[in-house]
């Protein structure tokens, strides 16, 4: 479902004398439907960078990034947008929303985007929010005013609203209490059971053990600096 072949990524800083910073080189990995892979490596090793390259948020310098038959490294913007709408979900560490939009609509939006009827979309959103212990009295408020933990749970609810065949999860269990953590792990297991290919970053080792089928250490993709 997700397959990377020899992907590299570098940043060119034009305003700092054109410095080129290579951050990733020779990254190859594959994820089958129903499989969950954990990315490991020290902070700064490039776990999130790899995820952003797969999502098309960072432009790969070379290599192939195949997701559901689309090469994200080369696809036109509208093909990547269609891929993100239908196929590839991403739960980032930050919630970014239009101010003033109620939480319930924020969570329902990915479903509306794929043509689910508004009532059905809001029902699904309500189920997810309730499951993640966001009190119903907050659903009509914008999540911009919520606490960090609440925003993160809204972000997870939004990420799991549509049943994406491929998902990227950036620290989905960080800073959650035991009960919510269990709910998130259950959502991940349900997604695997319906055949989703998942790549996740988990600092929480127990969570990683529980849901990941194998791990990939991204330090292997860090360019070797010539001494």
């Amino acid at each position: 479902m997700i397959e990377l072949q020899n992907v590299s990524k570098s940043f060119t800083l034009h305003n700092q004398g054109g410095a080129v910073i290579p951050v990733m080189e020779g990254a190859s990995l594959g994820v089958a439907p129903g499989e969950c892979i954990g990315l490991t490596g020290a902070s700064g090793a490039g776990k999130s960078t790899l995820m952003r390259v797969i999502y098309g948020n960072y432009l790969a310098a070379s290599g192939r990034v195949m997701v559901g038959g689309v090469d994200v490294a080369k696809a036109a913007p509208r093909d990547i947008l269609a891929l993100r709408r239908e196929t590839l979900g991403y739960v980032s560490q930050f919630l970014r929303v239009v101010p003033r939009v109620p939480t319930l609509d924020v969570v329902a939006e990915p479903l509306l985007a794929v043509g689910v009827a508004p009532d059905a979309a809001r029902d699904r959103a309500a189920t997810l929010l309730a499951g993640l212990n966001i009190p119903e009295r907050l659903w009509q408020l914008s999540p911009t005013t919520f606490s960090g933990g609440e925003q993160q749970r809204v972000n997870i609810a939004r990420g799991f609203a549509h049943s994406y065949p491929a998902m990227l999860l950036d620290e989905p269990t960080a800073s959650l209490d035991a009960q919510n953590r269990a709910t998130v792990l259950r959502l991940i297991e349900e997604a695997k059971a319906r055949g989703a290919a998942i790549i996740g970053i988990f600092h929480d080792e127990a969570a990683r053990e529980q849901v990941c089928d194998r791990c990939v250490d991204v330090s292997a993709f860090t360019p070797k600096v010539a001494a």
Partner: peptide
């Protein structure tokens, strides 16, 4: 420069966009 909005804003390629 052209591209996906979030890609251009998060990983700008051209010197002017970076600025």
């Amino acid at each position: 420069e052209t591209g996906l909005t979030d890609q251009v804003l998060d990983d700008p390629q051209h010197a002017y966009t970076q600025l």
